[in-house]
Design a protein around this nucleic acid. Structure first.
Lengths: 225, 225
DNA sequence: CGATAATTTGATTTTTCTCAAGACGCGTGG
DNA sequence: CCACGCGTCTTGAGAAAAATCAAATTATCG
């Protein structure tokens, strides 16, 4: 059973819906996942904490990252509505998860989820599918980080954002240049310069720093390597 | 049921054991996984093929990689005895798997495994655990590819190989400089130069190109970033 | 409106890659 | 057993990509 003491309510986390309000959903996970609000820049979990919960983004954006002692940071992924995150190999989180916009996140107790999965194959499949998706995305990202140029990384990122947000030719970047740089293994200066270069070549238009029009998606796609 | 026609026997793949010979194992996966021999440099599956099977290394080493059109290659992981690989998000393999030494690999039909997992929670847990392990390793590798220097990558790789092979201070590299470079996102020249530099600094000793002694593992660990 | 943070742009340095050549190692055939 | 050939690995010099350092510009938020 879900009680308030089992929920990871941080200073910013606020339960907004209770089970009864969403019980009519056809998604079995909605039955056990409480919804929690996280405002912008608040931690959902922190590196080293016990990995007691698994999460699903309802609205907003979550960044999962890890820092080295000297401040270098790698953002392994951004999670958007519908994405699950927080799967861990062992008992503690190796990464940190933070909301980078005001977000609503569904929270599942791992033990409850495991118990449910043992009796409901659909739940087990959903969990495995989410994990596998995450793995595939991670593997694709390794190719990008290991073998692609700055230009290829930026272009691939823009196209991915456009695809995931389904906003057509307009891309709204929900994260800072720092976040983009730390996701793509670059510096903010290189990110900025590359975007400027794409604008000079008339492939994109920077309406503002975080609002970009893809003027020629086909040509961009050819630049992803 | 497992019949010979369901097995992915390539030119090099040879079934070496049948179920009856290993039925006494306490591992439920051994009951449905046939063992197949792959000799060095042979494909286990190729990018674009239907992802019909999942695999587990019994002996040898398997490299999973993806190439870009211009020949750039990223090796997402090396799999050693006990490791499972071949999980895919969708119906076709996004990567290529090849034996880089004479290897024995257990082969599981995905549909059989799924069916078994639906009734045997232990199997479902094992599959999810293997996938999650893979994901964690991939995330750690992203940090290395995105944010670490050549020196840090090489040292981390040496220590990982020592840990996984449990050979103490002696590391036998089972792969070429090309493979190491393509796994770490470097060139063979940088790999070679970095190893030479470590030898100059008396942190390792190159008995031969592929046999290395870690002379000071503690100092090496401090170099991993 | 002003302060502060975020982003862009410029100049220079560093790291790693690329291109080139030489050394080593290993298996084959004489 | 040795010489040869070929693939692998190492080393060097120069080039390229991206990082770093620095400053200017723009956006954001009280």
């Amino acid at each position: 059973m879900l009680t308030s003491t089992t929920l990871p309510i941080s200073a910013s986390g606020q339960i907004t819906e209770v089970r009864s309000q969403i019980a009519e959903s056809d998604d079995p996970l909605d039955l056990i996942g409480a919804r929690v609000n996280y405002s912008c820049d608040n931690d959902i979990y922190y590196e080293g904490e016990p990995a007691e919960f698994v999460y699903r983004v309802v609205s907003g954006v979550v960044r999962v990252s890890k820092c080295l002692a000297d401040g270098r940071r790698q953002i392994s992924a951004f999670y958007m509505p519908g994405d699950m995150f927080g799967f861990e190999g062992d008992a503690t989180h190796a990464f940190t998860a933070e909301a980078i916009a005001d977000s609503v996140v569904q929270v599942f107790k791992r033990s409850s989820l495991t118990r449910l999965a043992d009796t409901d194959a659909a739940v087990a499949h959903a969990i495995l599918q989410a994990t596998t998706n995450d793995l595939c995305r991670a593997q694709a990202h390794m190719l990008l980080l290991g073998r692609k140029t700055a230009l290829e990384r930026i272009v691939a990122f823009l196209l991915e954002m456009a695809t995931r947000a389904k906003t057509g030719h307009l891309v709204r970047l929900l994260m800072s240049r720092y976040d983009i740089a730390d996701h793509l293994g670059l510096t903010i200066e290189t990110v900025s310069r590359t975007l400027s270069q794409l604008e000079t070549e008339d492939l994109i238009e920077l309406l503002s720093a975080r609002k970009i029009i893809l003027k020629n998606p086909a040509a961009l796609a050819r630049l992803t390597g």
